[in-house]
Amino acid sequence: MADNQQNREKPILLRVDGLSKSFGGVHAVVGVSFELRRNELLGIIGPNGSGKTTLVNLITGFLRPDAGRVIYGGRDITGWMPYRIARLGIARTFQMVKPFPALPAFKNLVIPLFSPRVKSLAGGRYGDRDSVAKDLLEDVGFERESSVTYKAAGSLPHGYLKRLELAKCLALRADLIILDELFSGLSIAELAGIVPIIEKLMVEGKTVIMIEHRLRELFRIADRVVVLNFGRAIAEGKPAEVMEKDEVKKAYLGSEEEEG
C-alpha cells in the first residue's frame, strides 16, 4: 500500500532482537529479529506451528523470552507484564475470540475503555463509556441503529466477533496493533468488509502487525512480510519477492494450495 521509499524515512517503532523461546524440548521461536517502522503494515506468515502466535505472546508480554530483546519506541520492554505493555499502546487480538458472552456487544468495549491509558490520553475526561463504545463499533462496521450493537456478544456471528476484537484495539487507542489471524474463518464477503477498516487504520497512521494464513488477502495490504518456519525467520521482504524464495516455497509446499 504505502510506498516503501516513504517508509524508509519513518522512525523505527518496534525492534525485535534475537528473540528465543522454548517449551521443554520444543524450540518455538529461535533468534527471530526484525524491525518495524511507524505506519508500516507487517505480515508474519508461516505454516502451522511455526511460532507465529508465540512470537506475538513474546512481544506483548504474555510469555517471557528465554533470550533476546523487544524494544518499543526506544524502550526495552522485554519481560514486562502484559498490562504495562498494553499501556504503552500495543494492542492485540487473540486467535480465539472470547467475548464476554452475556454482555451486549458494546458493553464488551467498556473494559478496554476502563484502561488507564485511555484515561490519560483523554486527560481524564472521556465522557460516557457506553456512547464511546457505540461509536467505536460503528467504526468497525456495526451498523448504527441496528440491533446488532445491543445483542449479547455470545450470539453474534463470527464476522462480528472478529470486528469486536478489532474494536477492542481501537478502544485502547493503540499505536501498534497486532492482529492474530483476524481473517481466519471469515467469508469473502466478510473480508471485503474488514479489509477497508485496516486500510483506514493505516491512513490514520497506525502501525499494524498481521499474523495470517490467508496469504492472498494479506499480500494485497502488507508492506512487508516476515516468514517463519520452525521458529526461525527464514525470509523477509516485500510480499511478492518473499514468495519467490526457495526456502519459502519449500516451507509452504503442499500447504499453499489450500490458502485463500
Binding site: T60, M81, Y83, R84, F94, F100
Partner: peptide
C-alpha cells in the same frame, strides 16, 4: 473471571 488475558491486554493490572 471470564477472560483475564483480554483484560490484561486492555492495559489493566488484574
Amino acid at each position: 473471571r471470564d477472560n483475564d488475558r483480554s483484560v490484561m491486554s486492555a492495559g489493566l493490572n488484574i
